[in-house]
Design a protein around this nucleic acid. Structure first.
Lengths: 301, 301
DNA sequence: GGATCCATGCAGCAACGCTACATCGACCCG
DNA sequence: CGGGTCGATGTAGCGTTGCTGCATGGATCC
């Protein structure tokens, strides 16, 4: 019962299959399968059960996978205990963020961390569906994710730590020459019959537009579904519709006008997601501190 | 950084040397040395330092060893999590006890556990100095140990769990025809100038006689040092001196007379000592429950 | 100052876990 | 309803790891 094997089981559970787990662990499916089989033999209770052509964890498997994170946490804590005796934290930290979050946070984060000697940041942007953010924590140390203000929290339970970074309002984006462009705020009533550019179903903040529509009394008329906010911005600029855009990230530009919404709560929460064991690493904690400080700066500016 | 290596470091610390650690781990000193060297290389800080011809852990080593027990605990908890899904607990539990404790507790414990299917008890009696009880936990699952009533607790800190089992009074043991044999109790004053049979220096309850002597106003006159209470009993019976004997263990016999002490607190505490990781095992917990119930019976009888 | 004890380095060997490939079952689609 | 595909699982072979056995170098005890 070594932690590697336990971690493999955990990955099979969280990734939902042998092949997917093998991918994040940089192993062949065969190796993963063998590890699970060996673990199963060791404990004497079935840990997985076939469902269709894939498989999922049994209750016993879930229990063991949950215990596995505690093992991983204990191990990382052991490493950190030694790092305390090293004068400077050292190592590489992998950070991912959704695009607009990356644009908002990563440049400043890199600058801040560059000042700390010994820490290497590996950044990447990841555009995934709302439900897939947690799964990223298997490949990344810190996952910057966003979700609707009022939506449900993150799945993943005890295994993943959620660190709130920022709340960012979503404003109405209109062309510069739009009738609403000169307003200091708009109310739900003003939004009737506007042509909307929305994000794809299932993607973050997709539900916000629905909530706004509900307040205005009629379902919003969605004419385009675009995930990349820059493309959205270009479409809005060209008069192909209006949209909701995050204030801090797009408020500075001159291509479209952002008008605050009143009478309805529209915003997104930006959180950092980490696996509990990764959160124990000294360097990760250090980077996370910078990220939080950075977010606090933005939020209070 | 695997738990095996961590456990090895822990053993080096608790056993106080490579060779001793190798003994309890069933390895060669060479293997232990290599593991420590590898671990040291991995964390980049010195974990051990030479002292004389042996070695001890550095502060960093101590920190890592302490973290190692948390890893072990987490691992055992993972095992236990699976065992919950097995219908019956199963496995072997190694129990050791000092002689008189073994005599008092082990027969009844074996009977109780025999009624539970699947648990195998491996008992052994261990006569060690007071300070060496904790080190036994590396070889045993449950160590039944005793210490003076008022003495200091057990060393070992966070790594070892102490489960109080019983307080056993120590009575004055005199020959059947001794002047004090008919008394219902004796006071410290009555003990002046008696020839004492004591246990060897450094062994459990050695300090109790000193405390009694201090109350009587003069240092007790020790004529023999015997560790085995049965030998003590025989000496007392033959009139070669008086002694302190535990009430529950030797009260029933007709070879000597036990007279309670008044005016001075004399007794020993009987505790179960376990490593925290071992304490997580389901079977160990089960055996420990029986042991506690058994001790409660004796204490209340 | 010789004997002893302890930790450590090095060569050799066994075992373990991985990859690559083949197989089998379940789903999808024409 | 059958070919194609995807996913999990066995098997052979190989590389790596970690152990033992022995030799070495210090430090202590008598």
């Amino acid at each position: 019962m070594d932690p590697r094997t336990l971690e493999t089981l955990r990955a099979v559970g969280s990734q939902g299959g042998v092949t997917a787990a093998a991918a994040v662990l940089h192993l062949t499916p065969s190796a993963v399968s063998q590890q699970v089989a060996q673990l199963q033999h060791e404990v004497g209770v079935p840990l997985t059960e076939r469902v269709g052509r894939g498989l999922r964890l049994t209750p016993a498997g879930e229990a063991l996978a949950e215990a596995a994170v505690d093992v991983a946490v204990a191990l990382e804590r052991a490493r950190a205990a030694c790092d305390e005796f090293l004068e400077r934290p050292q190592g590489v930290v992998r950070v991912s963020a959704f695009q607009s979050g990356a644009q908002l946070l990563l440049p400043a984060l890199l600058s801040r961390v560059a000042a700390i000697d010994g820490i290497t940041l590996e950044c990447s942007d990841e555009d995934v569906a709302q439900d897939d953010f947690v799964a990223l924590t298997d490949r990344m140390d810190v996952v910057v994710a966003h979700r609707p203000d009022d939506g449900p929290g993150w799945a993943g339970g005890r295994a993943v730590r959620v660190v709130p970074l920022l709340r960012e309002p979503l404003d109405l984006a209109v062309p510069l020459d739009h009738p609403l462009a000169q307003r200091t705020e708009v109310r739900p009533d003003d939004l009737r019959d506007l042509p909307w550019v929305a994000v794809r179903e299932g993607f973050p903040v997709a539900t916000v537009l629905g909530a706004v529509g509900a307040r205005s009394g009629s379902a919003p008329r969605i004419v385009h579904r675009i995930n990349d906010f820059h493309v959205v911005e270009a479409l809005v600029e060209a008069g192909h519709g209006v949209s909701l855009l995050p204030r801090y990230t797009f408020g500075g530009g001159a291509r479209v006008r952002l008008v605050p919404l009143a009478g309805v709560r529209a915003g997104r929460r930006i959180d950092a997601l980490l696996r509990r064991d990764r959160a124990e690493r000294l360097v990760v904690r250090r980077v996370l501190d910078e990220l939080r400080a950075l977010a606090a700066d933005i939020g209070s500016a």
